[in-house]
Design a protein around this nucleic acid. Structure first.
Length: 494
RNA sequence: GUCCCCAUCGUCUAGUCAGGUCCAGGACAUCGGCCUUUCACGCCGACAACACCGGUUCAAAUCCGGUUGGGGACGCCA
């Protein structure tokens, strides 16, 4: 069997969004599974809309996800000569023709057809122009485009889609499409095929929005006498109103970059994306990279489109809840050393990183992460909710402040009292710190919870967290004592 | 308007090809409960779907037809 060769051909007109990322992922998965190659090709023939920043953003997005390619990036505009040569070849062999209809004429016809509720296709006005007529128009300086001449055939044109099954369409439904602009620049339908032929692409996995393009492109393959690749049209990703996801109408919530910036784990996001439209046929929902590569199959991709169920304005579920759930799962089960590297970057950019965390304090650093990660949703939480573990200048959440601290005036005496006892403790251990705290509560005839919860808020700034005495040991005697003694500050005193 | 694709809980889905084991299973979310110094995890439980109508069959979520609904395409964009 020949090597499988797949490609991901984004047009650099914006950032990488989740639909594109999912397409890239499925192509990558299939290439890796079959031991084939994945090619990145930047389709920048729309010079008006393509931008360098966009190219950069797309490559960064793929890098972040860990979707690596074997060839490229190639740039479509580098192969313009080939595209034009192909168009010329088609023209010479009578498979294409020059069309002198102006944009204005075509727009008017389209509008009229729309108004009359008639089909919108090109009416083939220029298809049967004689050589003399063409020469005459050219002599008059009229600009022309090159159109592909859809063969005059009865019956249907079809192909076997690896996801959808057999697809058949009447030839009469296919328009004579433009392959070269009047300014001489080749267009997508042609470029894409010429490049795929040159790159020896064997499998084209792309969105269902390309289905009509596929029909036209099959005709191009035939006219160019090239073997047909396998086609697989993936379901589209829709928004909660069931409209196609697009950069323009949805903004950052659909950008891969947004998830990177929100502290998602790259593999968790891939895992989520993979499940948006595919399942192995069982209940498994967490896959290692190796497992997913092994289990993935085109045939098990769903036919129906999937909704990216993102929410907004919710502090916890700021996107699809399932994406967050999967992220949380990886956050608390992944190798702690790996997590340490990721959190390091977060701490660094927050100015909280200490080099000792990589050396003397490495053990402390990793065990602290292990202690606090259970309650976190993203990598960002380590520097926000978890700030008190790495710095002294943390915020106190107003809610627990009112509920656990300000409610009891006497804490201004109790907590410093506890601090004194902790300071004198011979053995600053889990058991001893807990015993002393409970002892104090008993002496004061209050519930241990009052002391413990107040302590949590004062020491971590949070309403919730790990077991209080684990926190005490982790943060250490000195800081604990200081923070407990400073409780008065919270009551607005000095 | 024309053509194409699709149709199971709010969302992601299993089951559909090879009809019976499905008064439809799992997960997320939601709501209860347990656990607990808090919160989370975990565990237990609840809520919740075969779009509709016909046909075939002893039997249909599964096969067939139609209807409805949703999506996509119809560019000198990609």
């Amino acid at each position: 069997m020949t090597e499988t060769r797949l490609r991901f051909p984004p047009s650099p007109t914006g950032y990488l969004h989740i639909g594109g990322a999912r397409t890239a992922l499925y192509n990558w998965l299939y290439a890796r599974q079959t031991g084939g190659k994945l090619i990145l090709r930047i389709e920048d023939t729309d010079t008006g809309r393509s931008s360098l920043e966009s190219i950069q953003g797309i490559i960064e997005g793929l890098e972040w996800l860990g979707i690596d390619f074997d060839e490229g990036p190639y740039f479509q505009t580098d192969f313009e000569a080939e595209h034009i040569a192909a168009a010329q070849k088609l023209l010479n062999q009578g498979a294409a023709y020059k069309c002198f209809c102006t944009k204005e004429e075509l727009d008017a016809k389209r509008e009229a057809a729309l108004a009359a509720k008639k089909p919108l296709g090109y009416d083939r006005t220029c298809r049967n122009l004689s050589a003399d007529e063409v020469a005459e128009k050219e002599a008059a300086g009229l600009p022309s485009v090159i159109r592909f001449k859809v063969p005059e055939r009865t019956g249907t044109l079809g192909y076997d889609d690896r996801i959808l099954g057999r697809i058949d369409t009447n030839y009469s439904e296919i328009d004579d499409f433009v392959i070269v602009r009047s300014n001489g620049k080749p267009l997508y339908l042609l470029c894409n095929v010429v490049d795929d032929i040159r790159d020896r692409i064997t499998h084209i996995i792309r969105g269902q929005d390309h289905m009509t393009n596929t029909l036209k492109q099959i005709l191009l393959y035939e006219a160019l006498r090239a073997p047909l690749p396998v086609f697989a049209h993936m379901p589209l990703t829709l928004d909660t109103k069931k409209a196609k996801i697009s950069k323009r109408s949805h903004g950052e919530i659909v950008a891969v970059q947004f998830y990177r910036d929100c502290g998602f784990l790259p593999w968790a996001f891939n895992n989520f994306l993979a499940l948006l439209g595919w399942s192995a046929g069982n209940d498994q929902e967490f896959y290692s990279k190796e497992e997913l590569i092994r289990e993935f199959s085109l045939e098990r991709i769903n036919k129906s489109s999937a909704i990216f169920n993102f929410q907004k304005n919710d502090p916890k579920f700021f996107t699809d809840p399932k994406a967050i759930f999967i992220n949380e799962h990886y956050l608390r089960t992944m190798d702690i050393g790996e997590l340490g590297k990721m959190v390091k970057k977060e701490l660094e950019s927050a100015g909280l990183w200490k080099d000792a965390y990589d050396t003397d304090q490495k053990e402390w650093y990793l065990s602290t992460l292990d202690l606090i990660r259970d309650r976190f949703h993203t990598l960002k939480d380590f520097t926000s909710l978890g700030r008190a573990y790495f710095a002294d200048d943390f915020e106190i959440d107003p809610k627990p402040l009112a509920k656990n601290v300000l409610k009891y005036e006497e804490l201004q005496q109790w907590l410093p009292q506890l601090a004194d006892r902790y300071e004198k403790l011979a053995e600053f251990s889990l058991e001893e710190t807990e015993r002393v705290a409970r002892e104090l509560a008993e002496e004061l005839a209050i519930k241990p919870g009052v002391i413990i919860n107040a302590m949590r808020t004062v020491v971590t700034g949070q309403l919730a967290g790990p077991s209080m005495f684990d926190i005490i040991i982790t943060i250490g005697r000195e800081k604990i004592v200081r923070r407990l003694r400073d409780v008065g500050k919270l009551f607005g005193q000095e």
